[in-house]
Design a protein around this nucleic acid. Structure first.
Lengths: 210, 210
DNA sequence: TGTAACTTGTGAAATCATTCACAAGCGGAA
DNA sequence: TTCCGCTTGTGAATGATTTCACAAGTTACA
């Protein structure tokens, strides 16, 4: 299953569906239809069914999907049946906010270390995680068995750190620095660029219904 | 110009190009080719040229683009020739980090107010902006002429606030709450969902080259 | 002037993603 | 058992985005 390449947009919607399923589960709802999931997620029922169909057949015609079963299937597809170890590089405002953000641990992402180069920041404790010296980074990535690196550093430091952590064997990076970064196709990289999101909104304000 | 609908992906790449142009400008480079912009942004030269072609003709055959001229054109296209007033709702960890993030002001987005409902947070000053009582929100949005609202509130508070600020006339929202929110098609909404980005990376770790 | 080396702008082709539309399966009622 | 209402799963159609490929414009230089 899942042999051919699946669109990124599909995978992201799967995450949304999972969140809705967990909500419905908490409310005790037994089954859910593709139409119901669609309206929660602002998409269409055909889209929901097509998204799921890439991974198998999970529903019952006439009935819909069993909430708990689909929820479990999605968690398995998304790789959320285990916890993932996350290291944050950069102990500035963004790095600290990320380190203290509870949403990560709730979803199975454990922040195991935070790094900085500024002696004034090293040693500070953030919700139980002590900021470490960035010189320890390479050794730690292996020792701590880090799965995912979050980059919360200035623009000019981002690409060199991508190169450095990928050399150390890291295969997934979430970049918060406001520059696109590149790595081998064996490494999964996403960027979150908040200023860019605002620029997109500015564009829409200027151009929508113009 | 720009009459038909432009793909979101195109607009986002335009923001990237602009950033590169500003860098090149600072380095004193006079002209740049589509191929050069492409390799900086991890795309192709045809993509760069096609993106620009939706908005006009900016280059010279054989020469490339004049850095300063293209930079100015892109700023105009993206609506960055003016500053935009931003209000942040939610004075928790994320709201505070956003309020203090310098990247926004540098790009012409002025944080004019931060709101919370918790009395313990109201009155606190964040980089010169004092956290205000959320009861003042509706009146303030008009008085302060806010253009864009950033939502940094818990999941369950997000949709009601979207409804509230759109009623007050807001037409652009950047949502950091970990739920999809919906509004009329006259309102531009983007969501930044950091846990979802990690879930996507987890999926890639499990499935890439599997 | 003529030629070589570049580079843009853009239709056409290819690829990728979404939507349509419907056969087929299921549960409940009579 | 049969019928009805509902819902899935999925090929086919449509729509959107990216890539290709090339004519035409520009500079440099002999």
């Amino acid at each position: 299953m899942a042999l051919k390449h699946i669109a990124e947009s599909t995978v992201r919607r799967l995450s949304d569906y999972l969140r809705f399923l967990e909500e419905l589960e908490a409310q005790g709802q037994q089954t859910v239809s593709s139409g119901e999931l669609a309206s929660l997620g602002g998409t269409t029922s055909a889209q929901v069914r097509k998204d799921l169909s890439f991974f198998g057949s999970f529903g019952k015609r006439g009935l819909g999907y069993t909430v708990t079963a689909l929820s479990r299937s999605l968690r398995q597809i998304l790789g959320l049946e285990r916890t993932w170890k996350v290291a944050i590089i950069g102990g500035g405002k963004i790095g600290r906010a990320l380190a203290q953000y509870h949403g990560f641990r709730e979803r199975g992402f454990d922040v195991v270390a935070v790094y900085d180069i500024d002696p004034a920041r090293i040693g500070v404790s953030l919700d139980g995680v002590v900021v470490r010296d960035q010189r320890d980074l390479d050794a730690d990535l292996t020792t701590l068995a880090v799965d995912i690196v979050l980059l919360a550093v200035p623009a000019e430091a981002a690409q060199p750190l991508v190169d450095r952590v990928t050399s150390a064997g890291i295969r997934a990076i979430l970049n918060f620095a406001p520059v696109p970064v590149q790595a081998s196709s064996r490494v999964a990289i996403r960027s979150v660029n908040m200023a860019l999101e605002l620029e997109f909104l500015a564009y829409e304000l200027v151009n929508r219904d113009a």
